[in-house]
Write a protein that binds this DNA or RNA. Structure first.
Length: 498
RNA sequence: GUCCCCAUCGUCUAGUGGUUAGGACACCGCCCUUUCACGGCGGCAACACGGGUUCGAUCCCCGUUGGGGAUGCCA
């Protein structure tokens, strides 16, 4: 169980919003690393910000993770030996370690209020100088001064005493050596006046006490790392390995935001993106299987190939086109049964069911009918979003109609007589009180075309639009079979009269 | 402003001290087809710039430019 070489990684979101693509990618890479190394993937919730943390966000993040299939070995809902996994439930642990820091003289009390800080920053800037963060105002307060301020009931935070010379560095898994001059590091707050630890402190205590071996996080955390390293040092702990992954940007290479379109994982779900496709695409952002291998992969295949060494160090732009392509590839690879499962809720939602009066050959249940309908789609079924449009006409007369195609192919003086002739021929040549197969319709169409001295295509095209409302559809004979002769005739006559 | 990071087709990327710099998405053309899609074939398109190092740099070093991040008692 406790294999010392077993990597332990974590995803540690704060519940202050939905699970966005950046977070999802971070979670994914941690998960991939754990799964590919036989390691443990921990989910920890960083809710030390009392103001911004919400139950809804917490739930949304868990939903997003579950939707993507990123299962965690320890964390909310599943427990584990290193809990609790919510920082708000670990306050005692943080206080205990704060005392350790205080006893070692690594931290000091800071009585500066937000207003004090603002005023001093303004003064510095007004003087034309750079404000380089907290100025160490309370760092050298005497014992007496501290006692007096405390006696006045002034609230205080704890700050870490950071070195003013030398450097702090680490070897990043992704970007090699990273080094910071200690003089640019400021004495950041480690424990807030509200009695909660800051992220900087909690993350260190948790990663250490939870036995995390590799911290894989977004590149936006790079500048936090040296400060955190100093906390590890002050506590006398060996830090984990760090890997900072490149950011995900919008198509314009600017920070990914709302105006780029969907950014939360759940929005993609509503956009008809399959979780497997989302996972696949996210994996391709900053990582590649190498060479010219197939990019369309299942999670299992990605796990098999995944390696942190292949993770890129440059930021990547999020490309909706490519996501859609990966998505359609995943849909195309689905089995007939899987497609059926995907489509069922879509028609159920609209109340679309099989009507026995349609007289469909060898079909007597809605599921069987839907299966046949999906079968006609073949590879045209590449998006969950367009599906209702694509198959609606099989179920209802109140279906999507592409007006442009209708005007061009149906509502014309050339098309009307052809559609009427075909309707007449169907009624004359076929038993419209019985189900008919595609071949039977084809025969009627071809003989009608011959009789009228036109090409079959001249009849087929208006019929396609008349029946489906669109100029693209499955093979028209098959469409007729699945519409049933009565409906076919009815729609043709209605179209001719339009 | 200061600190840190990044830089191969429009985008995601592969790659090497000597290659016709490869693949994928998107785009364009052709073929297939009753339409559309799928598929097949082909095309367009990149080593940011300037200095070095070297017999030779896309690759190594420095600088410039561009982009990103950080600069919170947010995480």
């Amino acid at each position: 169980m406790s294999n010392p070489n077993q990597p332990r990684v974590r995803f540690a979101p704060s519940p202050t919003g939905f699970l966005h693509v950046g977070g999802a990618r971070t979670a994914l890479f941690n998960w991939l690393y754990a799964r590919s190394q036989g390691g443990v993937f921990v989910l920890r919730i960083e809710d030390t910000d009392q103001e911004r943390s919400t139950e809804e966000s917490y739930a949304a993040i868990l939903r997003g993770m579950e939707w993507l299939g990123l299962d965690w070995d320890e964390g909310p809902g599943v427990g584990g030996d290193f809990g609790p996994y919510l920082q708000s439930e670990r306050l005692d642990i943080y206080r205990e370690h704060l005392e350790q820091l205080a006893a070692g003289g690594h931290v000091y009390k800071c009585f500066c209020s937000a207003g004090d800080l603002e005023a001093r920053e303004k003064a510095v800037r007004d003087a034309g100088c750079n404000w380089e963060g907290y100025d160490g105002h309370c760092r050298d307060l005497t014992e007496a001064q501290t006692t007096e301020l405390e006696g006045q009931g002034k609230p205080f935070a704890w700050r870490l005493k950071t070195p003013t010379e030398g450097t702090t560095f680490w070897y990043d898994i992704i970007v090699d050596k990273r080094e910071f001059q200690n003089e640019v590091l400021v004495d950041r707050v480690v424990f807030k006046a509200d009695g909660f630890p800051t992220y900087q402190f909690a993350v260190v205590v948790d990663d250490h006490t939870m036995g995390i071996t590799h911290v894989l996080r977004g590149d936006d955390h790079v500048s936090n790392t040296p400060f955190q390293l100093l906390i590890y040092q002050a506590l006398g702990w060996k830090p984990p390995k760090f890997g900072h992954m490149p950011m995900i940007l919008g198509q314009d290479k600017k920070r990914l935001s709302k105006r780029h379109g969907a950014t939360s994982v759940e929005e993609f779900q509503n956009l008809g993106i399959l979780p497997a496709a989302m996972l696949n695409y996210l994996a391709l952002l900053g990582w590649s299987p190498g060479g010219s291998g197939d990019e369309v992969m299942t999670a299992e295949a990605i796990i098999k190939k995944f390696s942190l060494k292949k993770v890129n160090s440059s930021p990547a732009a999020f490309d909706y086109d490519k996501l859609n392509h990966i998505n359609s590839e995943h849909i195309k690879r689905l089995s007939a049964d899987e497609r059926l499962d995907l489509a069922k809720p879509i028609i159920a939602e609209r109340g679309w069911v099989l009507d026995p009066e349609w007289l469909i050959h060898e079909v007597d249940t809605t599921d069987a009918y839907l299966a046949r309908v999906l079968g006609t789609l073949g590879n045209r079924f590449s998006s969950l979003i367009t599906l209702p449009e694509q198959i609606g006409f099989f179920f209802t007369d109140d279906h999507f109609v592409d007006q442009e195609s209708w005007d061009e192919h149906v509502a014309t003086d050339e098309a009307r007589p052809l559609m009427i002739a075909l309707a007449d021929a169907i009624e004359a040549d076929l038993d419209t009180a019985a189900p008919q197969e595609a071949g039977a319709f084809e025969e009627v169409i071809r003989s009608t075309a011959e009789k009228l001295g036109v090409k079959a295509g001249q009849i087929i095209h208006p019929c396609r639009v008349a029946l489906s409302g669109q100029s693209r559809s499955a093979g028209i004979f098959e469409v007729m079979e699945l519409m049933g002769a009565p409906r076919t005739v009815r729609r043709l006559r209605a179209a001719a009269a339009s």
